[in-house]
Design a binder for these strands. Sequence first.
DNA 1: AACATTTTGTGAATTTTATCACAAAATATT
DNA 2: AATATTTTGTGATAAAATTCACAAAATGTT
Lengths: 222, 222
Amino acid sequence: MVNKNYIIRLSNYRHALNRFKTLGFIKVFSDNLADATGVTSSQVRKDFSIFGISGNKKGGYQVELLLERLNDILGKDRLQRVIIVGAGKIGKALINYKGFEKDGIKVVAAFDVNTADRVPVEIDVPVYPLEKLKNYVKKNNIEIGVIAVPDNAAQGVMDLLVESGIKGVLNFAPIRLRSDTDTIINNVDLRSELENLVYFVNATGKSKARNNDKGKKNREEQ
Amino acid sequence: MVNKNYIIRLSNYRHALNRFKTLGFIKVFSDNLADATGVTSSQVRKDFSIFGISGNKKGGYQVELLLERLNDILGKDRLQRVIIVGAGKIGKALINYKGFEKDGIKVVAAFDVNTADRVPVEIDVPVYPLEKLKNYVKKNNIEIGVIAVPDNAAQGVMDLLVESGIKGVLNFAPIRLRSDTDTIINNVDLRSELENLVYFVNATGKSKARNNDKGKKNREEQ
DNA sequence: AACATTTTGTGAATTTTATCACAAAATATT
DNA sequence: AATATTTTGTGATAAAATTCACAAAATGTT
């Protein structure tokens, strides 16, 4: 069963590959990708096996071909348009972040209850009042929305997004959103990440090690 | 072996408990916490069992006592001071975010190569030039740092933080940081989160379900 | 062209994580 | 005070994820 962890790893392989490509690599081996992403080489091969990706025995994988295959799996063939709800601190940071574009993700609009004093200055992403969200999403066939509003507004926004027909939500509010549809919810909980660090920092030296895929020191995560 | 996932769940239980407390609850049952955090009740009990937390058969758990216990485990007894490196978009958002304080996390300073045009306006967190970081960390015994600089600067900042004696790092740069010390690194990779959504949104209806702890729709995560 | 070396691909084994299921305890009910 | 009900706590079990390990294939070497 393919789940989030597989996709995160594929995404990591893809990014490592892009770097290898920049460096002029023509082929890579599973242990190059393993080193670059912090997993074992058998993990890399197993993942590829699951997605039907194959290389050459002794010859490794052709960078170009492998990238194509990963791009295909990850839906990188077309630009993914995303909207952001909440043009506060986090919303603004996301709106102005240019790094997504090279990964095929484009913030096309933002929505906020208070558009007046929240217009981001640097980039030409329009900020609309919340009332226009539903219409915009339907008209433009937006599939992914980011929730960057305060806790107490988050569920309301979630309901609005679901009602508008959105398919996936990235939630920055530190609460558990509910939806009875099959809308996909990913959470980014910075508070939790920091609390986590606090715990392990305090535990350092008390031999409370941590070593699963997410916890292992020096391992990727996302 | 206690790892990140345990701590994330404990952190979630703690937050649910705080809400229950606000609502006037005196006691809770494992399935209240399960509902609130999106896990099973046996998971809640198993987690508690691992941390030696016990309740009363039939009586559930005393909210107040349980909170104390969780606060203790999660190191919530004292304020955790954190520094932020990089006063760009994300750095600024974190600096100005007030939500952490109620969870005992305080941003005490920020550092940036370019302090001039990057001073955050709203809150009185000082922004120092990068050269002052090492000294500041040592002098103030800072344990946790947040990396919010561009990719290409991230490893350099990481090295600097490690050299300064920092114990835990929350990394927003979408690369795998390396350190030969046992500094703990947690990554927040928004690009990866969005790519993940793209995959599952595209897969919707193609019966590519996802159902592990992180992937299950409507489940908490971080 | 034979032999050595490297690397994939994948079943099997192992480890980790989560769920089940039920005895024991606490509370409620009659 | 006896009986019924509820909920914990945890071994046993199941499921999931990862690693192992090795045959097979591709490439390199003598």
